[in-house]
Amino acid sequence: MPASEDLPYVLVDVFTDTPFGGNPLAVFTTAEGLSDGEMQAIARELNLSETTFVFPPPAGQEGHTVRIFTPRAELPFAGHPTIGTALVLHASHGGAHLVLHEKIGPVPVRILAAEGAPRAVLTSPRIPERIADAPPADLLARLLGLGPGEVLGGAVAPACCSAGVPFTFIPVRDRAALARARLDGALWQTALADGPAPHIYVLTMEDWRAGTALCARMFAPAMGIAEDPATGVAAVALAAFLAGLRDLAQGANRFAIRQGEDMGRPSRVELTVDVSGGRIAGVHVGGGAVRIGGGALSRAALARRAG
């Protein structure tokens, strides 16, 4: 692309069917020629939780290369950028099966368009796993500004899980406790920032043993995200957390995640955990997206940026 041309982008809200709900995403559909520093500068300028940049696929392969940036860092894999980018590409190129080549590897995405607005379902390139024990429940309660007993322990205890991006999963007593949670940034810095799972996923369920619906919030100061309204990569890692609480059934186990409600951006994330022989065999995350606008970023302004 000539240096004089502006960079077009599409703005979508992901994991929702309602404008101004879900998680916003900017998709730069023709990013050839951009450097890593330029992509990071653009993501910092737009200040969305993530911004994606689309390139041609690796030589000899099909699909699209996708780079994902938060305002502070590049991510190897993320859910709402994958879902949103896939639906933007589907709108312009069509196709029921896409492959997005992300830093973590190829991510297959199916487009479901039989009824209503299209939805996208990604298959995680990595099986999630528990990676570490979490800090004590009483410390996590103080981290969230909650009282004694509001962070659960025992059979339903916090844990650190990852499918490429590590999260500390913190189960809380009820929906009211989830709504009151406020992250203590100073305590996070000293207790979790340098730990194995610095990103915080707080969740609650009415029935931890058999329920399929849950509510969640996600805080990621390490990514420059105060709170995220919908987090697909955390949903993938959640599969490992849930498998640690109960015996998942053979076949497909489906869960519905509500997130973003306490931010005024309600989101719905669909999680399917495939189980074979008592082990997680695959994880799929799905949802919709709504196009709310677009524009172009000035290449001339980008070239004049400081730093």
Rank of each mutant, 00 (worst) to 15 (best):
T123W: 08
P125H: 13
R126I: 06
I127S: 04
I127K: 13
E129I: 05
E129L: 11
E129H: 09
R130Y: 01
R130H: 11
A132M: 08
A132F: 11
A134N: 05
P135K: 13
P136K: 09
P136S: 14
A137Y: 02
L140Q: 06
A141Y: 12
L143G: 01
L143E: 04
L144G: 05
L144S: 05
L144R: 06
G145W: 08
L146C: 03
G147D: 13
G147C: 04
G147V: 10
G149V: 13
E150S: 03
E150R: 09
V151K: 02
V151Q: 04
G153H: 11
G153M: 02
G154C: 10
V156L: 04
V156C: 10
A157R: 15
P158S: 11
P158W: 09
P158C: 08
A159L: 14
C160G: 05
C161N: 13
C161D: 09
S162F: 11
G164R: 07
F167L: 06
F167E: 00
F167N: 03
F167P: 12
F167W: 12
T168Y: 02
F169A: 05
I170G: 00
P171N: 12
V172W: 07
R173P: 01
R173I: 13
D174R: 06
A177S: 15
A177R: 12
A177K: 00
L178T: 05
L178N: 04
L178H: 03
L178K: 01
L178Y: 03
L178E: 03
A181P: 11
R182D: 07
R182Y: 01
L183T: 02
L183C: 05
D184K: 00
D184A: 01
G185D: 05
A186N: 04
L187T: 00
W188C: 00
W188G: 00
T190L: 01
T190N: 00
A193M: 11
D194I: 00
G195N: 10
P196S: 14
P196R: 14
A197L: 10
H199D: 11
H199S: 10
I200W: 01
I200Q: 05
T204N: 11
